[in-house]
Amino acid sequence: MTEEKKGLTRKEFLKLAAVGAGVAAGSGLVAATEGLSAKGPVKWVMVIDLDRCIGCKACHVACKAEFDVRLGVFRSSVIDYEYGRYPDARRDFLPWLCNHCDNPPCVKVCPVEPVEAEFKGIKFTKKATYKRPDGPVLVDQQRCIGCGLCIMNCPYKVRFFDPAKKAGGNPAANPASKCDLCVHRLDAGLVPSCVNTCQGRARIVGNLNDLNSEVSKLMRGARVLLPEKGTKPQVYYIGEGAARINDALRKGIDIRIEANSEYQLKVWKNGPYAG
């Protein structure tokens, strides 16, 4: 979808970009040196090499197929960034999904009563949205009351109301949903569906607590989205593409962004969650 259709002006769109894509001029992607720990048994993270991403959107569709995701919403998409003047025009791609933050604001605001839970012998507390000890931030749709606080408080705007489902804690509402790092696959020893299909092998998943893992080895110069929000994202971006997008944003270059969901745009623009 193009912005024309949405009736958005370029300025508004840039504003959305700054929020929606999670990259604001002057901040944006910065080198990630924090948030790395060598503790814990397994810590799943994703590294995305923007040089290897060709914007094919196979990941977007594979994710739709994996979870039969409804039209209008998505767990992962790919944003096209266009900038520069002819003939030096450029386009870069930014795969976009839940950052599985180590300090997740969505979890903080979830009003559902925490309960004790255990994962592979590790005890933790669990609201309707919670962080599993091995990394993924998850939503328990059975307990979710559909209040939308997590959706509103995710600075990356990757959460949505699951349109065809009922929230277990409030059947009148739709539950929150988003990328769950394909925990059903990780638990079965499989890479996430988007990683599996990625033809560029741009998406790499692995255990950051294993220094020999591929993700650990790729961590040099890795960047994260909106580090200043203090969310400690666990989706890392590497490659010159990451530097380029960041640079363009810093310089305040006119950037054209294509999004693919009216729902997402509505959330950005009109919804109670805008800004």
Binding site: L190, V195, V205, G206, D210, K217
Partner: peptide, 23 residues
């Protein structure tokens, strides 16, 4: 090798349902 294994995660040829978790 690393790319093929991704920390001993399998790259395909096997699948589980996200709902029932059955293979």
């Amino acid at each position: 090798t690393v790319q093929g294994r991704m920390d001993s995660l399998v790259m395909g040829g096997k699948d589980v349902s996200p709902v029932t978790k059955k293979e």
